[in-house]
Amino acid sequence: MELFTIKGLKSGTTFLFDDRASFPEVIHAVEEELARAKGFFRDSPVVLHFGERNLQKDEWRQLKEILHREGLLLRYAVAATEKSRDLLYREGLPVREELIVAAQEKKTVQPEAPEYPTALYLRRSLRSGQKHVFNGDVVLVGDVNQGAEIIAGGDTIVFGTLRGVVHAGYPDNPSAVVVALNLMPLQLRIGPYIACAEEGQLNPRAQRPEVARVKDERIIIEPYQGKL
């Protein structure tokens, strides 16, 4: 896990601090990230998440300096250990034991804590040569014709006929799914996995809505049973 990550979670912008590395390393990562952000987070309310870390007073003071300098508004802190919670509380910060929605693992996709703040909703068909790339879930009401492409960081739901290429869970999330009313893609990709259509079929027509997902390291297609 990275030393320091910034996440746009359902609970709000959250700063996650690695709880195993040495604090100087973490501080350094924080300064780097924020320098790169070039004041983007000024006046932003953020949640601080320390995980299992036992935070020391001088460590907190050092971090607080940096955060204030960046103009951040501190909403509350999350710390698993009582020691850290005590410290932060005495320092004047509201504390919680957990986030309302826990999302510490970067690779885990949890239904209550989407890693991306919104989904892309398209109410049109994609013709050959048209392409959409989105860092989240994509819902398209219409068809995706052969030669069209959707590249989504999350799930892809096509409320129509899917004949083109879809890459869900881009680049490496194997728990993403692809659903279509009529699933007839040329090629399907989920995270690092890829599946190709059978050859020689002029116009195969699926009879029902289907979902494609990764199971046992391969992409399988099943009838869509009403929920994912």
Partner: peptide, 16 residues
């Protein structure tokens, strides 16, 4: 035919 139809689809997209 499959190939011309795909090209037609592309062109329709461009004309729209």
């Amino acid at each position: 035919d499959v190939s011309p139809v795909r090209d037609a689809d592309r062109v329709i997209g461009l004309l729209q």
